[in-house]
Amino acid sequence: MEAKTSKVSIVGAGAVGATLAYAGLMRGFARTVALYDINKAKVEAEALDLAQGIQFMPEATVLGSDDIGVVEGSDVVVITAGAKQQPGQSRMDLAGATISLMDKVLPPLIKAAPDAIYILVTNPVDVVTLASLKKSGMDPAQMFGSGTALDTSRLRHQIAAKCDVAVGNVHAYIAGEHGDSEVALWSSASIGGQPLKEFRGRDGEIVMDEAAREQIHHDVMRSAYTIIEGKGATNYAVGAAGARIVEAVLGDQRRIMPVSTLIDYPGVGEVCMSLPAIVGRNGIEHVLEMPMDDEERAALEASARSIRETAERFDAV
């Protein structure tokens, strides 16, 4: 009896797609990794470059093609293709072009790999995920966006640096939109089991006071703009985040991650937005109810409204 092996297909061989493939291969997230892109020369070159480094990674087969058939048999399909965010441009400004691209690419993808879990890693991820779900008819558990997994990583990195602790000891989430209206859930944040707002440094003083929290939230929210202004695109952290979500699915890890999934938000309607959710082999297993104060609840509702308004503007609901 032939052993079943895992296959991950990545749609888009640009900076994010190639970096996600590299991060995943280094971690050994699948036995077969396929890259699909309409640019034949680019996708074949990226696949060859990755394949020639396999000696130094966990064993895997790397494929690259402009033929949609390369994704057949995929367990997970990660879509990174989309309009490129320019310096000073908001993620929401990208909505129209990226939604139009999804209209073209999703039907043949789903036909080729109907049973795969689909993860969207393209901006604006919340609106694009909602439009993709509505137009494809896919189960929301089976298709979701990378959401604020990256923003949460940025938040934890900043908190760890400020508090001088290992980032693995920080538990905090960004919720809502992956973008300008995102919400830091300070009420549930902790370090080593201690509420974040009560954490004291070596000098015995509270580290994360209101001013520190506001500055960190601002820096996290502006991170992408800063990186794009400096180097033209973000790719390393988002590639690593995407690879980590794939691992949670393929390994059935039931890992809690803030990913963008369909929610019927009270008073707003259906939106795709991020809340911590359990991610496993069947995709989104369960969305968690997080403790929040009144300010956080109001901000999360405003974020949901922002996403919904943009979705309606692009007929994505």
Rank of each mutant, 00 (worst) to 15 (best):
residue 154 R to V: 04
residue 192 G to N: 06
residue 170 V to Q: 08
residue 225 Y to R: 04
residue 214 E to A: 14
residue 181 S to W: 07
residue 161 A to M: 12
residue 149 A to E: 04
residue 238 V to K: 09
residue 229 E to N: 15
residue 148 T to V: 07
residue 228 I to F: 10
residue 259 V to F: 03
residue 136 S to A: 11
residue 257 M to E: 14
residue 174 I to S: 07
residue 204 G to K: 00
residue 231 K to Y: 10
residue 193 G to E: 02
residue 246 V to S: 00
residue 236 Y to F: 12
residue 188 S to Y: 01
residue 234 T to I: 15
residue 228 I to Q: 13
residue 195 P to F: 05
residue 215 Q to Y: 03
residue 250 L to N: 04
residue 233 A to H: 12
residue 148 T to G: 07
residue 139 D to H: 07
residue 170 V to M: 11
residue 246 V to E: 02
residue 259 V to S: 05
residue 143 M to Y: 08
residue 259 V to H: 05
residue 195 P to E: 07
residue 248 A to F: 10
residue 194 Q to K: 14
residue 222 R to G: 04
residue 223 S to H: 07
residue 220 V to M: 00
residue 147 G to Q: 11
residue 175 A to L: 13
residue 243 A to R: 03
residue 244 R to W: 12
residue 151 D to V: 04
residue 159 I to N: 08
residue 158 Q to I: 00
residue 171 H to E: 11
residue 214 E to I: 06
residue 234 T to E: 15
residue 256 I to Y: 02
residue 214 E to C: 03
residue 230 G to C: 14
residue 201 G to P: 09
residue 242 G to D: 05
residue 187 S to H: 02
residue 142 Q to C: 11
residue 178 H to A: 14
residue 139 D to I: 08
residue 147 G to V: 07
residue 176 G to F: 06
residue 204 G to E: 01
residue 134 K to H: 09
residue 188 S to V: 08
residue 237 A to G: 11
residue 172 A to K: 06
residue 183 V to H: 01
residue 147 G to L: 12
residue 149 A to W: 04
residue 243 A to G: 13
residue 209 D to N: 15
residue 217 H to E: 12
residue 252 D to P: 05
residue 180 D to F: 09
residue 210 E to M: 10
